[in-house]
Amino acid sequence: MTTEEEIITVALCAAGSLITRFLPFAVFSEKRPTPSFIRYAGKYLPSAVFALLVVYCLRNTDALHGMHGLPEFLSVAATAALHLWKSKMFLSMAGGTACYMIIIRLTENL
């Protein structure tokens, strides 16, 4: 690739990002009232999207081989338990991550 082709490639990636991010805002402007289905979607989508994002983060976990996803499962459970108990965001995340880092070290030679 020439430098020019590299620049175009990066610019197209940026364009892809911009288009997907701006699309809803461009279609439904502030001036006109948002259609009722879109308002309904905006209200109910986030719960589904957060569930989707959790699965997305864990997508490469192999449940059939190796540790069968046990480190991930235990650490997610630890994060959730900490959060339900103390509901301190930073504590839950630090605890869950520490749990994961410890488990993968303890189990790497198994």
């Binding site: 719960s47 957060f50 994002l53 959730a80 991550t97």
Partner: peptide, 17 residues
């Protein structure tokens, strides 16, 4: 393994929601 912090973030936000 520190990248797990992102998973933990979404788990926490999912629970809050």
């Amino acid at each position: 393994g520190i990248g797990f912090v992102m998973t933990a973030l979404f788990v926490v936000i999912f629970i809050e929601q």
